[in-house]
């Protein structure tokens, strides 16, 4: 289990800072679960996180940004202030402010946030709940979250996926 909540009474601010300085980091300085790492359990903390490895369980970083990178595979519910999805997620995703889905993402589960954006030209199947007053968000984050302005314009679209061909002709009326 990887618990970075840092909320225990006996842990000093110095210890926390020291621990943070030792945590694996992305080139951008964000805490990172690397591509070769497989974590199982409840992952929590108070800093932004990039997942490029495999995480099973729950990710709770309710005041921070969680990014599932293009190599990341998360089999867990994700709770974040802002969540960016580029890789594979099997679980529900709750964003206190926003969820951004890139074209490379493969999601199986619900996306719940006051604002959900899908990269321009992208397609999806599944459930998206963009209601700041929904019970799911109240339970996850407390009071209703203020809906932020629309997310910044996503990157240009790539070629659209194809729809599976039909095997049977429609009936004539």
């Amino acid at each position: 289990m990887f618990n970075k909540s840092g909320s225990s009474d006996h842990q000093s601010a110095h210890d926390t800072a020291s621990e943070r300085s030792r945590a694996p980091r992305s080139p951008q300085g964000v805490a990172m679960v690397g591509a070769s790492i497989h974590m199982d359990g409840r992952l929590s903390g108070e800093e932004d996180l990039l997942v490029e490895g495999k995480v099973t369980g729950t990710i709770e970083l309710k005041k921070n940004t969680v990014t599932v990178g293009s190599k990341g595979h998360v089999m867990a519910d994700i709770y974040g202030k802002n969540v960016v999805l580029e890789g594979k997620v099997e679980g529900n995703v709750y964003g206190a402010e926003s969820v951004v889905v890139r074209r490379s993402a493969h999601i199986t589960g619900r996306l719940v946030a006051p604002a959900v954006s899908l990269e321009q030209g992208g397609y999806f199947s599944g459930t998206i709940d963009m209601d700041s007053e929904t019970e799911d968000l109240k339970k996850s984050f407390g009071q209703p979250q203020a809906a932020p302005k629309a997310a910044p314009a996503p990157k240009p679209a790539e070629a659209a996926e194809t729809v599976a061909p039909l095997l049977k002709q429609p009936n004539k009326s």
Partner: peptide, 12 residues
């Protein structure tokens, strides 16, 4: 708007 959207992709 406050929206729930279920995209069922029935054609597939």
């Amino acid at each position: 708007h406050r929206v729930r959207l279920d995209a069922m992709a029935m054609a597939e």
